[in-house]
Design a protein around this nucleic acid. Structure first.
Length: 920
DNA sequence: TTAGGGTTAG
């Protein structure tokens, strides 16, 4: 090649870089290598910059590095600097640092590039250290250096240092007053000192667009959404110019407060201002949708984006991963490699996050290999993502191995290990990792503490580990952190000590929303639903707005207690507060309607199929199942598949229980067989219980027994209880005895074992055994959970026990009962005394049946609610067979719809028939 | 001097 040609190569290459055609520049380099072109330092520096800016595969930059060494251009300051910057971009600061040490000549850009690397790697102290060295060595700072140092002061929350730096800047006359003020605003914003930022802004004589953007951002970063919006309105009023940075800042706040209504408003404004096509703005919108859980909105927006860059693609991978759409994330990742042919370490990190469960471990391993092959193994963020990926998949040995060979570990590495041990229920290991972290001299942060606390879940753990850690938290001052406070409340509750949880909560001087939510959830999980709802009231009275978490806990409490009116009011509040677009909240509301018997409302608020989440599909299937609409449940499952939604283990629990309640034995067995082979969902104990129920109810008791022998998981109490209940239906004394023994083996104090077994014996007429069992219960001090039914009328709940006589309207209730007995007998009702569980004469047996709580509740409902209105009755135990028959007759005679809910499902009676077709 | 993607937690 001649000199002239070399020069033209140079010109071409710099043309590509100037024109930002980075991938062309890289292709050009390949040709150049083949042609053996002699290169200049400038050309190589441009090329490295091209690799850097294109976000290309890391390997291409490495190739250039090798070439540069070979041709002896490493001493060139521009080449060295661009390579150093390149390593920094990929998070490989130690490599960058090594280059820096070896360089014979350095300029201000060299220094600044390494500082940027340290800054991106989270090593703020190193940045300041280097700034001080620069001043010692009299290297003159440029604007970029100053900007970086000031930003770092913000990150370090070191206002004093920031002011010193600014003093130096003013002294050297490097900047104007406006830009000094702007920098100050930004620094105060990062330090969390919004007040001071506003003071500087308000005192400024002159403001430019950046000043306005900085003050909006300072408020936005600190979660002050109303304030940032106030400045924005003011800006539009007096300043006129709004640019893409302004809009991006406003969108950031909408993500952090997770209020989609707000984000939608800003989005409208974005469209009006014509800034929607700006790539930064677009990327902010993608993040907003992702954080609000609306990955489908993000997806369609991405498709419409006129300009996309690497960050847009990375955002989509992250969006799918964050929304637990692993398969979609990996498919998108594959598309990305095909379409734009580039990726960065962020891409790999996000793709790894999508593999954080055992189902995708194979893909995760491939990505691990990709990271190694790309030379990005030493990147600390990738290392941390790998630790997380293995840890969340339960492969802790591999997670630990990755962490040991990492060149450097930070608090994120240790937090991931501690958190994954906790998630895998290895409390001791979690605590061990915490101690090792401290030994290694890495300081814990609030996330460390939150993770450690998450490891404790038993009373024993609480005594031996939880309480000492609590003492440590108080000693180290972490007890003032809102997340730590919340975790402490949750830990005490999880370890069974709700009393201490409440004590902690009551003792807090400032109670934030998340703290309220923690104590409310703690009560809900302990079955204290009424208390949880009372706390919701108190929270509102304390002037706090309910958020998506408090609303969904409250809705699920209403669902568990089956109190429709409260549920409806909460749903109203959801709409009023603007959470109706929040998938999670809306799904909880839907579940509430389903569990309160309002199938029509479930369908009313159901979203259209193309934006339905897996959770919505699952709730819909289980609602249909609970209401006895088995065909609908099946159709919904088919529709779900048609729309490309993958069923998960909850889907199959709903589907199998639908089959079991509907007597669809063969269909249920088919689903069970296909779940692993066709859908990759391995059967868990819940599914096995459904199958045993399915076989048992239909009378195939020996098949059920065989199934238990071959189950992939060891049987638990639910398995034996279900089998025992089926033995009662089909009067199988022998197997019933076996199941009851197994149940008592697991828990000798289980009351259901005694009760169900004595019922099996009673139904089979073995009154001698019944007597035996009852005596045994008495001597073992085991009490039966008393049956009760309740009705809500005129805003009051009336609860009835067996033979209840204490109701103020007692006389009218029993008069009504007598009348009912007479009329239904005339209509053809014949008593079935096999449901009487006490050995007396037939007449007494019938009398005892009329004492059942569900009949008393029915009589009360008939006299206390308006004629013709639907009746809603709830029972804590399964309805008795003879009562079921009474309800059918009554519904035909009084011409009213009667809904009866037991702990498992609904019976809808009308015109003498029941929705369950007498199979339950 | 202002804005967008990533790892732990929520």
């Amino acid at each position: 090649m001649s000199e002239r040609n070399d020069a033209s190569w140079n010109t071409m290459m710099s043309g590509y870089v100037r024109g930002r055609e980075y991938s062309k520049a890289i292709e050009f380099f390949q040709e150049m290598l083949e042609g053996g072109v002699k290169s200049s330092g400038f050309l190589m520096a441009s090329l490295v910059t091209a690799c850097d800016k294109s976000g290309s595969m890391f390997g291409e930059g490495l190739q250039v590095h090798g070439f540069v060494v070979k041709v002896g251009l490493m001493s060139d300051v521009f080449v060295g600097t661009s390579l150093l910057h390149y390593y920094g971009t990929y998070g490989l600061v130690s490599d960058a640092h090594k280059l820096f040490e070896e360089m014979p000549e350095r300029n201000v850009v060299t220094w600044t590039s390494l500082m940027v690397g340290h800054s991106d790697g989270g090593e703020s102290e190193k940045v300041i250290e280097m700034y001080r060295s620069m001043r010692r060595e009299s290297v003159c700072c440029n604007e970029n250096t100053i900007a970086l140092v000031l930003k770092t002061c913000g990150t370090l929350e070191d206002e004093l240092l920031g002011l010193q730096v600014l003093g130096n800047v003013v002294k050297s006359g490097l900047d104007t007053n406006v830009s000094v003020g702007n920098s100050l605003i930004a620094m105060y914003g990062s330090c969390g000192n919004v007040k001071e930022a506003c003071r500087v802004f308000n005192d400024m004589d002159e403001r430019d667009t950046i000043s306005w953007n900085s003050i909006i951002s300072a408020n936005a970063q600190n979660g002050l959404c109303e304030e940032s919006l106030r400045y924005f309105y003011w800006m539009r009023h007096v300043h006129k110019e709004v640019n893409s940075s302004t809009v991006s800042s406003l969108l950031t706040v909408s993500s952090s407060v997770d209020n989609l209504k707000w984000g939608r408003g800003i989005h409208g404004l974005v469209v009006k201002s014509g800034l929607e096509s700006n790539v930064c703005v677009g990327n902010s919108l993608l993040k907003m949708y992702s954080e609000a859980g609306r990955w489908k909105d993000a997806e369609s927006f991405f498709q419409r984006m006129p300009q996309k860059d690497l960050i847009s693609w990375n955002s989509m991978v992250a969006c799918y991963a964050q929304n637990e759409e692993s398969q979609k994330a990996l498919n998108f990742f594959a598309d990305m490699r095909r379409v734009i042919k580039t990726m960065s370490y962020v891409t790999i990190t996000s793709a790894l996050a999508a593999c954080s469960n055992l189902e995708f471990i194979a893909e995760g391993k491939i990505l691990h290999a990709v990271a190694v092959l790309s030379g990005l193994q030493a990147n600390i963020v990738i290392g941390n993502a790998l630790v997380t990926m293995y840890g969340k998949s339960g492969v802790m040995a591999e997670a630990r191995k990755v962490s040991t060979i990492m060149p450097k570990r930070d608090e994120v590495t240790w937090n991931a290990l501690i958190g994954c041990h906790a998630e895998n229920e290895e409390a001791n290991e979690s605590l061990k990792a915490f101690n090792m972290m401290r030994k290694e001299g890495i300081r814990e942060n609030y996330i460390t503490i939150v993770n450690v606390l998450g490891a404790f879940s038993t009373p024993d753990c609480l005594q031996k580990q939880g309480m000492p850690i609590h003492a440590y938290i108080v000693r180290t001052g972490f007890d003032s952190d809102k997340f730590v406070q919340t975790s402490l409340i949750t830990m005490y509750a999880k370890c069974g000590d709700l009393h201490s949880s409440s004590f902690m909560f009551d003792g807090l001087s400032t109670k934030r929303s998340i703290t309220w939510n923690a104590i409310i959830a703690a009560n809900a999980h302990h079955g204290c639903g009424e208390e949880a709802l009372k706390l919701i009231m108190k929270m509102r009275n304390a002037g706090l707005l309910l958020d998506q978490f408090s609303l969904s806990v409250a809705l699920s409490v209403s669902a568990d207690l089956a109190i429709l009116e409260e549920g409806q009011q909460l749903h109203g509040l959801v709409i009023k507060l603007g959470f109706e677009l929040d998938h999670y909240v809306t799904n909880t509301a839907m579940d509430m309607y389903g569990k309160c018997g309002e199938m029509d409302d479930v369908l009313r608020i159901l979203s259209p199929p193309f934006i339905r989440t897996r959770l919505s599909w699952n709730i819909l299937i289980s609602s249909y199942a609970r209401h006895g609409c088995f065909n609908k449940a099946r159709e919904t499952f088919q529709e779900m598949l048609k729309w490309g939604e993958k069923p998960d283990h909850v889907t199959f629990v709903s589907l199998l229980s639908a089959c079991s309640h509907g007597g669809l034995v063969d269909e249920g067995l088919e689903y069970y067989a296909s779940m692993k082979t066709k859908f990759g969902v391995p059967p868990a104990i819940e599914h096995c219980v459904c199958i045993i129920d399915l076989l048992g109810r239909s009378g195939r008791l020996s098949d059920a027994e065989d199934f238990i022998k071959d189950m992939p998981v060891p049987p638990n109490d639910f398995v034996w209880r279900s089998l025992l209940a089926s033995c009662k239906i089909h009067q199988n004394l022998e197997l019933g005895k076996k199941a009851a023994d197994k149940l008592l083996e697991l828990d000798p104090s289980d009351d259901s074992a005694y009760i169900l077994y004595s019922n099996v014996c009673a139904t089979s007429g073995r009154w001698d055994v019944v007597e035996n069992v009852r005596t045994k219960m008495g001597s073992n001090n085991i009490k039966k959970q008393p049956a009760c039914s309740w009705v809500k009328s005129k805003n009051q709940i009336s609860k009835f026990g067996m033979g209840e006589k204490s109701h103020p309207q007692n006389v009218q209730i029993y008069a009504k009962l007598g009348e009912l007995m007479k009329t239904i007998r005339e209509a053809g009702y014949v008593v079935d005394t096999s449901y009487a569980l006490q050995d007396t004469d037939e007449e007494q047996k019938e009398q005892n049946l009329w004492n059942h709580s569900e009949r008393i509740a029915l009589a009360y409902a008939l006299i206390s609610t308006p004629e013709g209105s639907p009746i809603r009755i709830f029972k804590n135990l399964r309805v008795c067979g003879d009562c079921h028959s009474v309800y059918k007759f009554v519904s035909g005679i009084v011409g009213r719809k009667i809904m009866l809910r037991d702990p498992f499902r609904f019976h809808h009676f009308s015109d003498g028939k029941c929705s369950c077709s007498d199979y339950w």
